[in-house]
Amino acid sequence: MDDMISQIEPMIPALRRYARSLCGDLETADDAVQDCLEKAVANWSRRRADNPRSWVFSILHNVAVNRLRRRSRWGRTVQLADLPDDVQIQQASQDDTLYGKEVLAAMEALAEEHRSVLLLISVEGLTYAEAADVLGVPVGTVMSRLARAREKLRNQLEKPPNIARRPNLIRVVK
């Protein structure tokens, strides 16, 4: 039991990051991580290798994808208190915050298969082989998806900002 805890516990922050980026909201992501950890503990004796990292990440990936499929069928529920403040009028934010939002929006615009590969390799630091194991695809597929994901992300971020969506913050007073 101590061996299992000592191997799984250091992975929890990375699991939470990956789940949050896949699920899009904190509560669903934390629930997915909890379900992943429960499955990992229950099936610890059936793990595939000495290093359980890719095995645990593949459990999380499958749990998160299943949650996303369920959510797409049922729709997303949001508590009234959890509505973002930008539903009402909000002042302009700083440039770095805007860029961060643009990056997150560009990530969200990627297909799930491209976003998953990009996050596993670029953020979580998995090798191509580990990412392939997590996603259940060949290493070559991981490499091509990663190249496409990076290119699509680059194209999204290089587009000029959509001025029509931004509120007019400057007024002329005569």
Score class of each variant (00 low, 15 high):
Gln88Ile: 05
Pro52Trp: 10
Gln88Asn: 07
Val123Gly: 02
Cys36Ala: 15
Leu83Val: 12
Val173Cys: 07
Asp2Arg: 12
Asn162Phe: 12
Glu108Pro: 00
Arg76His: 09
Glu124Gly: 00
Leu104Tyr: 02
Val65Gly: 02
Gln94Tyr: 05
Gly75Trp: 06
Arg115Lys: 13
Ser122Lys: 12
Leu119Cys: 04
Ala40Cys: 09
Arg76Gly: 00
Arg69Pro: 02
Arg115Leu: 15
Glu113Trp: 01
Ser45Arg: 15
Ala149Thr: 01
Glu124Asp: 12
Asn162Tyr: 09
Arg16Val: 12
Thr97Lys: 04
Gln94Cys: 05
Trp44Val: 08
Ala149Val: 03
Leu126His: 00
Met143Ser: 15
Leu104Asp: 13
Cys36Arg: 06
Val139Tyr: 03
Lys159Ile: 04
Asn162Pro: 04
Asp50Thr: 06
Asp2Ala: 14
Arg67Asp: 08
Lys101Met: 08
Val142Arg: 00
Ser45Cys: 04
Asn66Gln: 08
Ala164Cys: 02
Asn43Thr: 10
Ala131Asp: 06
Pro167Gly: 05
Ser93Met: 09
Arg47Pro: 03
Arg17Lys: 13
Val33Thr: 10
Ala14Asn: 06
Ala49Met: 07
Ser72Ala: 15
Leu26Asn: 10
Asp95Gln: 12
Val63Asp: 01
Tyr99Arg: 15
Gly125His: 07
Gln88Phe: 10
Thr127Asn: 04
Ala29Cys: 04
Val137Ala: 01
Leu110Pro: 01
Asp50Leu: 09
Arg69Trp: 03
Arg150Gly: 05
Leu153Met: 15
Asn51His: 14
Ile5Glu: 11
Phe57Gln: 01
Asn62Met: 06
Arg53Gln: 07
Gly24Lys: 04
Ala40Asn: 03
Ala14Trp: 03
Leu126Ser: 01
Thr141Val: 14
Trp44Leu: 08
Val172Cys: 09
Arg17Gln: 12
Val63Asn: 05
Lys152Gly: 00
Val139Asn: 09
Ser54Thr: 03
Leu83Ile: 12
Cys36His: 05
Cys23Phe: 00
Ala129Arg: 07
Val142Ile: 14
Glu108Gln: 13
Ser21Lys: 13
Ala129Tyr: 03
Val41Arg: 13
Gly125Asp: 06
Asp133Trp: 06
Trp74Glu: 15
Leu60Asn: 03
Val172Arg: 12
Glu102Asn: 11
Ser122Gln: 13
Pro84Met: 05
Pro52Thr: 08
Ile12Met: 07
Arg71Ser: 08
Thr28Ala: 15
Glu124Ala: 06
Arg46His: 11
Val78Gly: 01
Leu68Gln: 10
Gln7Val: 02
Glu112Phe: 02
Ala92Gln: 14
Asn66Met: 05
Ala64Arg: 05
Val173Tyr: 11
Glu9Met: 04
Gln79Asp: 14
Met4Ala: 15
Ser72Glu: 15
